[in-house]
Design a protein around this nucleic acid. Structure first.
Lengths: 201, 201
DNA sequence: TCCCATGATACTGCATCCATAATTATGAAT
DNA sequence: ATTCATAATTATGGATGCAGTATCATGGGA
């Protein structure tokens, strides 16, 4: 169901037909409703009492609330990672980054998106704070509710790559403050790209 | 159920008997299980497949992961609040703080705890970021899973008050950086108090 | 005496069914 | 023709019942 929500197969703001979905998945309404409760707590859907379940629709205000927090959290991850990173960790990151360069060169936004997520997850592992990582994962899910096509903006892939290089450089230097700033700016830059996209619609 | 979990009436690590609780609340297992799903997503309980539901038990490592994040988030709230605070807001905060002084003088840790929460919530309102506020509320719930008796430590109330005065001073001066630092240190100080408590057991 | 296997018990997870409330459709009155 | 009231339909929220599996106990074998 998460996939279908992210793919906008279930459209934002749209009503979720419990019986139809239950029938489709070949299960009864009971487990489906429990799943909806979980999705609701993750912020992917909203449950209106006696009115049913609706896919969450993010307002511009919502996005402006989530992104700064995301930037703060990811910045913290980078900071902590810079303190703890080993050369083996760094090597792993470089492999992932090489993949990113490849997909950017091929202008493959979807693959870039996937590998980008792997990059950030790897950083979370290095930082070693599971709670922090979980908050970021949740926030990322919420952000994914919006169109992720910002990566398809002219030049955004290249820009994102450059920002990643900054982060990698800070990690190589084991400079926590710089890593935090680079990562923070990277996320804010992502928000800006999204805004440009919204503005052009 | 949250109350009972926080009050350790349902003990950390303990198994939750669905039927017993359902019977006690006079409802069937279905809505109770849905409630457990919500609590699980809030981190208050853990659901082990085919094994039932258990009250979350925080390890020292868990606490060391949550508190820094909490300090980061609350720091951000203070920072943002310092930017947006009005004189009317400040007056409200001072009323709450006066209450805190009163309860501290009376050495009433429970009341202090409550009003302290009101203070922090008021700050969240001023900061005006609902997403950020929600993350903090969740984190606070998780933290409440541990004993909150750290406030009963000799001198902790006075120390907490002093830290609040620092925060208020930063807000009065509308100094975001100072507000962030003060709040951050306040939270870290809370973690230290908890550690002292754990050490004395 | 200790360990493993097998059966009994009990709890979880799911399906089905029912009641209540909301929404929509239909009919009447202005 | 339009609006309001009432009835019918539909969906949500909860209760009940059942199948499958995990745990525990008991008994047999080493």
């Amino acid at each position: 169901m998460r996939q279908r929500i992210f793919a906008h197969e279930l459209q934002p703001g749209g009503w979720i037909d419990e019986q139809a979905l239950a029938l489709e998945y070949g299960i009864s309404r009971t487990p489906l409703r429990e799943a909806l409760k979980v999705l609701a707590s993750e912020g992917l859907v909203v449950l209106k009492p006696r009115r049913g379940c609706y896919v969450t629709e993010l307002s511009e205000q919502d996005i402006d609330e989530v992104f700064p927090v995301m930037a703060l959290l990811e910045g913290r991850v980078a900071e902590e990672a810079a303190r703890r990173i080993t050369s083996a960790d760094f090597a792993r990151l470089e492999v992932i980054h090489a993949d990113l360069e490849k997909h950017a060169a091929a202008n493959n936004a979807d693959r870039f998106f996937e590998v980008n997520q792997r990059f950030h997850n790897a950083l979370q592992d290095i930082a070693g704070n599971r709670y922090l990582a979980q908050l970021i994962d949740d926030a990322r899910q919420v952000i994914k509710l919006t169109r992720r096509d910002s990566l398809r903006l002219e030049g955004r892939l290249k820009q994102s790559l450059a920002e990643h290089r900054d982060i990698l450089e800070a990690l190589r230097q084991k400079d926590p403050a710089k890593a935090r700033r680079s990562m923070h700016d990277h996320l804010i830059s992502g928000r800006t790209a999204l805004a440009r996209l919204a503005g052009s619609n």
